[in-house]
Design a protein around this nucleic acid. Structure first.
Lengths: 196, 196
DNA sequence: TTTTCTACCGAACGAACGTTCGACCGCGAG
DNA sequence: CTCGCGGTCGAACGTTCGTTCGGTAGAAAA
């Protein structure tokens, strides 16, 4: 096992435990057990517990950001772009539950430079969504603040770590479709007739 | 100051600190400082740190549940009921930010009986929303699972603790309206014409 | 006046925490 | 062969944690 593989393994095991018990309730001893590495051995790969969380968050956020950029680049229609953004987020979330839960739930367990870096990624991701939102008219004649619409969607999307089971009856693809339907057209049946 | 007032004060100060630093990062010494009570004195009012969190969560959840029940009882139209439910949740959230953040963010910091009691309240609250949803047709001809629709709304609503400032430019009432618009009719402008 | 009880506190306890230290081992370079 | 170094470890460090214990002050009850 190379150095990089070992680090990967440590990070992914750590993500699982952080997701399960929370960052602050996880001890370095828990991690050493799960990563099959001595307590002291962990410090050969990371400087501190905080840095470990930082690595997990930055890596995951970078990946989801780049994935989303690539996904929306592939289609032209604004409404479809928004759909694709949602689809990518949900699918990625379902495929990386532990890391994404850590990203969503431990958003302010970091501080200082670490927090600043992650917050900058968050800003970029939010702006990417905002751009997609500008393509579709928001609400009935602009009565909805785009920033509110952004946070509303992220809430819907990120909340899934509290309840969703990717192996349950609702597949990630179907979940994505349903979220897109709700967010784009609402929960109330269209007033009969006209629908895409 | 009576016993009950003292306990209230302790609970509300504790809620603020839990909201600020998280449950596990808050020490009993932090609480004793904020509540102007000695460390040992706290244990005259609660049996443990866990019980303290439990009191905060149960009290807040009971209040929001009863408030929501009263709110939807007051109107008859199904669509308006849903609107009222959303309005109540947002307004209550904005008025009790600390407690509601603790409720949302420390959902599984409890265990055993305490967790079971809070989860039961959560179940009731979810069912109340589900009942409101049954009044309006969900999605275009039932393509959306009501359970998914429920979680989607709760995500939108509860996520506000991560970004919303009730004293900022968007008032709680306006936020509620915008959430209702998005959730009921979607973010895409209606295909021209017909709108309630 | 004496007793009882409620509210409260200082000091301490044992456990668990994140981190560090010094040493050991196997391996490629010299 | 031996030297140095990257990877690993057991043991310990100092600190902080949640909780408990024995006791005090003061008001109410006797």
């Amino acid at each position: 096992m190379t150095y990089d593989e070992r680090l990967d393994y440590l990070l992914s095991e750590a993500a699982k435990i952080f997701a399960d018990k929370g960052f602050h309730s996880t001890s370095m001893r828990d991690l050493s057990r799960a990563a099959e590495l001595s307590l002291a051995g962990i410090y050969h790969y990371v400087k501190s517990k905080d840095e470990l969380l930082f690595h997990i968050q930055r890596r995951c956020f970078t990946e989801v950001l780049e994935g989303a950029r690539a996904a929306v680049r592939a289609v032209a229609d604004p409404e479809q772009r928004l759909q694709v953004f949602i689809g990518h987020h949900v699918t990625f979330f379902a495929a990386h539950m532990a890391e994404m839960k850590v990203l969503s739930h431990e958003a302010d367990s970091l501080s200082g430079d670490h927090l600043a870096v992650v917050n900058d990624l968050k800003r970029q991701y939010g702006e990417l969504l905002l751009e997609q939102l500008q393509g579709v008219a928001v609400g009935d004649v602009g009565s909805v603040d785009p920033r509110v619409a952004t946070y509303a969607l992220f809430g819907m999307l990120n909340w899934i770590y509290t309840w969703y089971d990717p192996t349950g009856p609702v597949s990630p693809d179907r979940l994505a479709d349903q979220f897109a339907t709700i967010y784009l057209n609402g929960v109330v049946a269209a007033p009969s007739g006209a629908q895409t």
